[in-house]
């Protein structure tokens, strides 16, 4: 019997689900290996028990927290999918502000109807077997992780920084073009897709296991970035990873 797989979505743009649907060349083989029983973007039917649940999005309301706990109870393996689910991502930027003001700004006078809470990663609410990073996730990594899970093995995240994949691709370093890039401290796995096309890495996959933030901040400063600019860059996807800028900017 093929393993039953569900794909679920919380607060997010649903781009990671779309990335799965974009696996056009591999979709038939994928459907030969798994049975998708819940996938709002793709099918109507709903299953109730899962071997693997892929959960996209961060948890920002009490209902979402309740729902992800229910999914956890019904699945053997839970994989958090994409930056919103693994890091809090863009959604967590609101955590840097007063949440009442945030609600008023977004919903106006109707704010009391929307009980939005501080953004949480999926793992802040339920135990997670694997986190697949990225905004959006990489197709290649989704397939690798899925196949590894189907074999009953534990997926191995890349131990490298984005710089390694960027060098492997033979790219001109963005620092050599005067652009500050977070590639040196960001988890690899994306194939350095942004720097390859000329965009700086924004750390959407989170930071490497042992980031040397002190050195990175000094480098950003030496490129003329202000405290606010450094903070904005480091927290764009990673608000929930606290960074102490005080020692670097106190005069």
């Amino acid at each position: 019997m093929k393993p039953k797989v569900g794909v679920f979505s919380f607060t997010s743009c649903e781009g990671c689900q779309l990335t799965i649907l974009n696996l056009e060349d591999e979709m038939l083989d994928l459907l030969g290996a798994i049975e998708i029983v819940n996938f709002r973007e793709a099918i109507d039917e709903r299953g109730h028990e899962y071997d693997v649940a892929f959960v996209e999005g961060s948890i920002t309301t009490p209902e979402e927290a309740e729902e992800v706990r229910e999914i956890r109870e019904r699945t053997k393996i839970l994989v958090a999918l994409g930056a919103c689910a693994t890091l809090g991502g863009i959604n967590a930027i609101k955590n840097r502000h007063d949440l009442h003001q945030v609600r008023r700004k977004v919903y106006g006078d109707g704010a009391h109807h929307f009980p939005t809470e501080a953004t949480q990663r999926v793992r802040d609410v339920v135990p997670v077997e694997y986190e697949m990073h990225g905004c959006p996730i990489s197709k290649r990594e989704f397939l690798q992780v899925t196949k590894t899970l189907l074999l009953g093995r534990v997926p191995r995240p890349s131990p490298h920084a984005v710089c390694t994949e960027c060098k492997t691709a033979g790219n001109v370093c963005l620092f050599d073009k005067g652009i500050c890039c977070l590639g040196p401290i960001t988890r690899a796995g994306c194939g350095a897709i942004c720097p390859t096309y000329g965009g700086d890495c924004v750390a959407c996959r989170g930071l490497v296991d042992e980031p040397n933030l002190a050195s990175m901040i000094e480098i950003m400063k030496s490129k003329g970035m202000s405290r606010q600019e450094v903070e904005d860059r480091l927290t764009q996807f990673n608000t929930l990873e606290p960074v102490d800028l005080e020692p670097h900017f106190s005069s």
Partner: peptide, 24 residues
């Protein structure tokens, strides 16, 4: 920063890791 650039661009570095990838 442990970004590994120094070794990746070195003409004489030869260390490698080995990994298996299966098809669907």
């Amino acid at each position: 920063l442990s970004c590994e650039t120094c070794t990746n661009v070195c003409p004489t570095c030869y260390c490698f890791d080995v990994a298996d990838e299966v098809e669907l």
